Simulated assay, not measured.
Amino acid sequence: MTLTQSFEAGSTARLDAQFAFLMEADRLKTVERANQTMDRARFENSAEHSWHAALAAAVFAPLAQTGVDVDRAITMLLLHDIVEIDAGDHPIHIFHNPVEVAEAEARAATRIYGLLPEDLRARFLALWQEFEAMQTPTARYAKAVDFLTPVLQSVGAPEQSDEEREIVWRNLTAGRATKTAAIVPALYRFCIDRFEERPGEEDLAARFAFWCEADKLKSVLRATPIADGSRPENTGEHSWHVMLYALTLGDLAAPQVDLALALRMLLLHDIVEVDAGDTPIHGAVDPAAQAAQARAELKAAHRLFGLLPRATATEFRATWDAFEAAQSPTAIFAKSIDRAQPVLHNLASDGGSWRTYDVTLAQLDTRVGDKIARGAPALWPFIRARVFPWFAAMGRA
Rank of each mutant, 00 (worst) to 15 (best):
T2G: 10
T12C: 06
M23Y: 11
D39K: 01
W51G: 00
V70F: 07
R72E: 03
H80N: 05
I85F: 02
A87S: 08
A87F: 04
F95D: 08
V99E: 13
A102D: 14
A109F: 00
D119K: 12
T136Y: 08
R140A: 06
R140N: 03
T149C: 14
D162F: 03
I167T: 00
T178I: 11
A182R: 15
V184A: 03
F190Y: 09
C191P: 04
R198I: 12
E202V: 15
A206N: 02
F208E: 08
W211L: 09
W211K: 10
E213C: 15
E213H: 08
E213I: 14
K216I: 00
L217W: 03
K218L: 15
I226G: 07
G236T: 13
V242T: 04
M243A: 06
Q256H: 14
V257L: 00
M265E: 05
L268R: 07
H269M: 09
I271V: 09
A276Q: 08
G277P: 01
I281P: 09
A284L: 01
L298Q: 06
F305Q: 00
G306L: 12
T312F: 02
T314E: 13
E315N: 13
F316T: 07
A325W: 11
P329W: 03
F333T: 01
A340T: 04
V343Q: 02
V343A: 11
V343R: 01
H345S: 13
S349A: 11
D350T: 10
S353V: 05
V368K: 00
V368I: 02
G375L: 01
P377C: 11
P377H: 14
W380G: 00
